[in-house]
Simulated scan of single mutants.
Amino acid sequence: MKYQQEISINRPRNEVVEKFSDPDNLEHWQRGFIFMKPINGKLGAEGSQNLLKYEMGKREIEMTETILKNDLPKEYSATYEAKGVYNFQINRFNETPENATIWITDNEFKFSGFMKLFGWFMPGAFKKQSWKYMEDFKAFVEDGKSVKNE
């Protein structure tokens, strides 16, 4: 399953990218975020890996992030692997003449095992989750609104 989403953030690109690239900010715009732990390589470097843990409903999910390209503000691409789910994601941040930023994300999901059924019957759930993260990031950057205690 492949899809692209974009959102306009009313802040300069350098500010948006700074907040996006700071792992301490994840808890403010990714609901359910518990922690991120570097497991291989230098934090943020191409080829490095991080263990990410989230609470989703009553379950905890761990995934491995592998950074493929970190050429911010132009591109940040990575893979995210969890049990039964593989996600390849590209993030780009484009400036507008109004000094705002367009965040464009391309996602490709592949499923295995039980998650194959979930991906087949509920593909909208993944798009909806991606969009919610984008909206929450926009609110965090523009208004300082955090999802941490929600």
Rank of each mutant, 00 (worst) to 15 (best):
E135C: 13
D71N: 15
Y3W: 15
Q89M: 14
T101M: 07
D143C: 00
E62I: 01
L117D: 06
F121E: 05
F137N: 09
P12T: 06
K83N: 10
S112V: 13
F126D: 07
E62F: 00
Q89H: 09
R92A: 10
S130Y: 03
Q5C: 09
Q4K: 15
E150I: 00
V141W: 04
P38E: 03
S21R: 03
K74N: 13
L72V: 08
I67A: 01
L26P: 04
F111S: 12
R11T: 01
Q5I: 14
M56G: 00
Y76G: 04
M122P: 03
V16W: 01
W103Q: 11
L117R: 12
I67M: 04
Q89G: 03
D71H: 13
D71Q: 12
N40G: 11
M56R: 11
F126A: 08
K116D: 04
F121Y: 10
A100Q: 13
T96N: 11
I7M: 10
G124F: 10
E108R: 02
Y54G: 02
K74R: 12
E27V: 12
F88G: 05
D22C: 11
K53W: 03
W131K: 14
N10C: 07
D143R: 03
Y54D: 10
H28A: 05
T105L: 09
F126P: 04
I67L: 12
M56W: 09
Y76V: 00
F109K: 04
K110V: 01
F20W: 15
V85M: 09
K37V: 00
E142W: 11
N149C: 00
Y86D: 09
G47S: 14
L26Q: 07
I104G: 02
S8E: 15
R11H: 06
R31Y: 05
E15Q: 15
R92S: 15
F140N: 02
I34W: 04
I67K: 09
P23C: 01
N50F: 03
T66V: 03
W131G: 02
